[in-house]
Design a protein around this nucleic acid. Structure first.
Lengths: 351, 351
DNA sequence: TCGTATCGAGCAAACGTTTGTTCAGGGCCG
DNA sequence: CGGCCCTGAACAAACGTTTGCTCGATACGA
């Protein structure tokens, strides 16, 4: 069974393929009677027409493929790439959703930084893709410059660290993690918490900034004894729970008063809960705890009671937004743009 | 700057495009003088020619796109999808490597099981892709049957559970985890270990089978007190370390003699090491420990001393193999085939 | 009534390949 | 010396779109 083509519709409507094409594309210079237009639309619907991508690509000199950049086998931070790939899932779903809805395919493209020609070859010369999404990895500086000079459509999806993009005229989509933590802190404050600890990996700079800003905004003093940071290379994602556990133990031993904990991640928060439970503290009665990330299955079987309140990055929406920004550049020649999306406070039992 | 096309080469060599095409494709019915053939090849090299995918697609009625199936937002096992996506990285790299080397692109395709028409629409009717790779998710049974009936090229890349494919005439690529654990056990045996414990999530059925087979092969008794299994829904990947820790503690308290531990994963092994260290056991002098997975950065900063010996699935190679199987089906009409690749024992300090 | 817009739609070329067919020239055999 | 086959290569069509251009017919103002 063959695909249905414009020709099939043209035959059935006794019109020319060009006319059918114009109707279906809503050509600007279109002049066609309403009756025939309706007929075309109906027949197209009946036959389940959808344009043949390769033919369209050939004609329009666009691939209708967007490249999602895969880089090194080993990323600079040992577990970073892995972790990012894992949370990147929802962003990727968003990307795929938005792109496929507009006739594009999201293709994985390996562009190792160790191979400076890969970009030149696959992207700039062969034009395998119409645009690039950098999700987990930042490219080398020369790559960045090359893309910028070529004016090639690129979007950085939650780049880490964000400062690496400074000055580059390239699009990016980020979650406003600072605001996310701020809103969590504000919530804690409305519940009467004035002494709030912050336990997190040192890499979570935006979340730390949110913590500090919130204190300032709420008129609370910054007590450094309540801030516990750990180093990601030594205490990585597999150890985030253990790290949270230890830092919480320390905090309890040090005897500094506090009534709430904002953790840098859900895994860390889980460790915090472990330590609190061990110490006989009730959550949220004695101590309120809020995590970050909203790890999948969080309110399912992932963590023991109490279900963790947390902050959720709008990952799916970030993917959608990134796709929109990229397509705007590709199809309308729009200028690069940076978008900051708002995370959501998810209240469950722990705060 | 324009792409170089066949026409450019034809102009420079004063030959016809068709001739150039035949030379470059090594057409079977080719008759051309050696001199001109060499000339074509040289000019093509000089101009950096590579075929225009859309044009080729249009002519050959193939998309040169392979779909990597993304399914649900939430997978049946809460964390499974996430975890798989994470270890799937290297398999994806292998796929991309092999596919791009043969002119194909690896594209992400969302085919939610909740949307039975997605497959029909995107794959069977629109033919957006020439073949499908199922990496993290198994499709619904009807989908499976539909694919089989249509004879559509599909490869399952390490399906879980493997039994789900039984009877279906569809390709699959798996790691022989049973053999992987067996080889680790054999190694432990050669180092004089006769009482080897097994601590793992209950889902690791092939690894457990390897443990049992190895015992049998080595003439060692199966002591059920040495086998500690935990349930993945309650103790998931984020808790694997904690689970390993607890099971190891239990084992130590129960006082059953053992000199080595085979863990079901590296994370579990890390917990095992934690407990051993806490109990004052030296590794590997008092107790040898072997993990499974070779988590990225393992010999880097991931785990504390001693560096963990482990079993590594040939993930990259599995990706390559899957691509080869799929392309054989697409290009040569090869029959579906199942491949079982061998994991590798990686010896470091812990055993 | 004639010239001129305007409307509605068809014609045809082009995008870059691949491949079946044709065709000129040369060598060989009868 | 004519007919035939073989070699090496060109010719041309086709894949499914898009889009500039043409063109007949109708409408309208002069």
């Amino acid at each position: 069974m063959r695909r249905t083509t414009l020709k099939d519709i043209a035959l059935r409507t006794e019109l020319d393929v060009s006319t059918v094409s114009r109707v279906l594309n809503g050509d600007g210079a279109l002049r066609i009677s309403e009756r025939k237009r309706a007929q075309v639309l109906q027949v197209a619907e009946e036959l389940g027409y959808s344009p043949h991508l390769p033919a369209r690509s050939l004609r329009l000199q666009r691939s209708f493929n967007i490249g999602y950049v895969l880089s090194e086998l080993a990323s600079p931070l040992p577990i970073q790439g892995d972790l990012e790939f894992s949370v990147a899932r929802f962003r990727i779903y968003g990307l795929e959703e938005a792109l496929s809805g507009r006739g594009y395919l999201l293709s994985l493209l390996r562009l190792p930084a160790t191979d400076p020609f890969a970009l030149e070859e696959k992207v700039l010369r062969r034009r395998l893709v119409d645009g690039l999404i950098y999700g987990c990895y930042l490219p080398a500086v020369e790559t960045l410059q090359k893309l910028e000079r070529a004016g090639f459509p690129v979007v950085f999806l939650d780049p880490f660290p964000p400062s690496a993009l400074e000055g580059a005229r390239l699009s990016s989509v980020c979650s406003d993690r600072k605001a996310g933590v701020q809103s969590a802190m504000r919530y804690l404050w409305t519940r009467g918490h004035c002494r709030i600890a912050f336990i997190s990996s040192r890499t979570n700079v935006r979340r730390l900034a949110g913590y500090r800003s919130a204190l300032e905004e709420l008129g609370l003093p910054l007590d450094l004894r309540l801030v516990k940071l750990f180093d990601p290379p030594r205490e990585n994602s597999y150890m985030a729970r253990a790290a949270g556990y230890r830092r919480m133990q320390e905090l309890l031993q040090e005897g500094v008063a506090f009534t709430a904990v904002q953790a840098g991640s859900d895994a860390t928060a889980a460790g915090v809960l472990d330590a609190l439970q061990e110490a006989g503290c009730r959550v949220p009665e004695d101590v309120a705890v809020i995590g970050y990330d909203d790890v999948e299955g969080l309110d399912g079987a992932l963590f023991a009671e109490p279900f963790l309140s947390t902050v959720r990055d709008p990952n799916f929406e970030m993917g959608i937004k990134a796709a929109e920004l990229l397509l705007a550049q590709i199809e309308e020649g729009a200028q690069p743009e940076s978008a900051l999306l708002q995370p959501e406070l998810v209240l469950r039992a722990s705060a």
